[in-house]
Simulated assay, not measured.
Amino acid sequence: MNKKRVTSQDVAKHAGVSRSVVSAVLNGTPGIGVSAQTREAVLASIEALHYQVDAQARSMKTGRSMTLAAFGDTAHPLFMRLLEGMQRAGEAAGYHLLLCSPGEREEAQSRRKLLDLYRQRRIDGIVTLDDTNYADEDWAGEVRKAGVPYVSVEGYAEAEGVVSVQADYAGSMKTALDYLTKKMPEGAGAPEYAEVRSTSWDEETNWAELQRKRGYLEWCEERALEPRVTNLLQHEGSVDWDGWLGNRSGSSPLPLLVNWSSAVPDLYRAARRFGLEIGEELRVMSADNTIGGDRLSVPTLSCMEIPYAEMGRAAVERLLRQIEGGAGEPAKTRLPAILKPGESA
């Protein structure tokens, strides 16, 4: 025999409250104050009666699917970290995540599919993980036309008309330099900054790298120190550090800030060839822990962790405020990177 379905009225009766209070606990209904004690009583009754919200009925009533789309490369570890923060923030607000990836489709086509899902009321908003240079005006225009709540993580850094969340790359450089120089003697010059470049990006247009260099130059200017910037090419995943180390033999200790941790393993190997001890004769730090280099390096690498999980949380919170009709906030949220001390500096 079919068991009678538990309703919100049953929960209200069990908890000794009105049905509107149950609704307020479930949906965060504005204008109805619920004390912590009452909320606990309602939640206990929901658990005791095994009450399940009728998602279809709630969607028809509220016009919401209680689902957010997360768009990015599901094979990319940074997207996985972003999803950690999105999942926690979404779950706290009663939302589920729908993972979307370009896959074999063209990216523009995949993004337009998201707009179709919004028009079908299958999602309530969109978060995309973008390249730091991403600023597609066509996509931004389609988002505005559809009226879909939208947040870009890393993209649209300078576009004030699009809500986005970025890391504070310039600020993270200053934090790294403060840490790297705390053991340096009085009167020592500025640490050298090694800007490792990939063949796939241009130093004049890569927003994140431009911000890092700006942070380094500002830090030096604030202390009246002469900046020292070295450019190195990462070719097929490798960086040749031998020339750099050869030109600096005898100048010990060498304080060095590298933009990517992915360039550090080659530096460690080169230092061993030159007989330099990491952390003593060569003090190294990375401004971006791109591959979890702090855990993979021996000695452990001091680095700045770009806070992708926290950026995911912030993106969902910004998205939910749009869904609720909030306005008047700055379009940009910039989050500080996390200092992770290691043995290398």
Rank of each mutant, 00 (worst) to 15 (best):
Q322V: 02
R58T: 09
E91K: 05
R228G: 08
K145A: 15
I291E: 13
L99H: 06
A331F: 11
P30S: 10
L83F: 01
G103E: 08
R248A: 13
L82H: 03
K145Y: 02
S20H: 06
I306H: 09
N247I: 02
G292W: 01
E104M: 11
M285R: 00
A309N: 07
M80D: 11
A224V: 02
R283M: 13
G187W: 02
I291Y: 06
R273Y: 06
M60Y: 09
V196H: 06
V316F: 02
A327E: 14
L276R: 09
N247L: 10
E305Q: 10
E186M: 07
C100M: 11
V148Q: 04
L267S: 06
Y179F: 13
S261E: 09
E104A: 15
G141W: 01
G85E: 01
T333L: 14
M86T: 04
I278P: 04
P307C: 09
A327Q: 14
L319T: 04
V127F: 06
A41K: 14
G90L: 03
P255M: 07
Y156W: 01
T132D: 11
D10N: 12
A159N: 11
Q56D: 12
V316I: 14
D202P: 09
T7I: 03
A57S: 13
S252D: 12
A309V: 01
M66W: 00
V25A: 09
Y179G: 12
T67F: 03
E204F: 08
E107M: 05
I338D: 06
G72M: 05
C303T: 15
F274A: 11
E158D: 13
L78V: 12
R223Y: 07
L233E: 15
F79L: 00
N206P: 01
A314Q: 08
I306V: 13
R105K: 14
G171E: 06
P336W: 04
L232H: 05
D138A: 14
P330D: 10
Y308S: 02
R223A: 11
D10P: 05
E222K: 11
E218P: 02
A345F: 04
P185W: 08
A55C: 04
H235L: 13
C220L: 08
A89K: 03
W241G: 05
N27R: 09
D73I: 02
V163L: 09
A271P: 07
V11T: 05
K145P: 00
V153Y: 03
R19M: 11
D266M: 00
K340V: 14
K182E: 15
M80K: 06
G187E: 08
V21L: 14
D130I: 04
E192A: 13
V53Q: 14
L339S: 13
N259M: 02
A55N: 09
V298D: 15
L256N: 09
A270C: 10
S110D: 02
A24G: 07
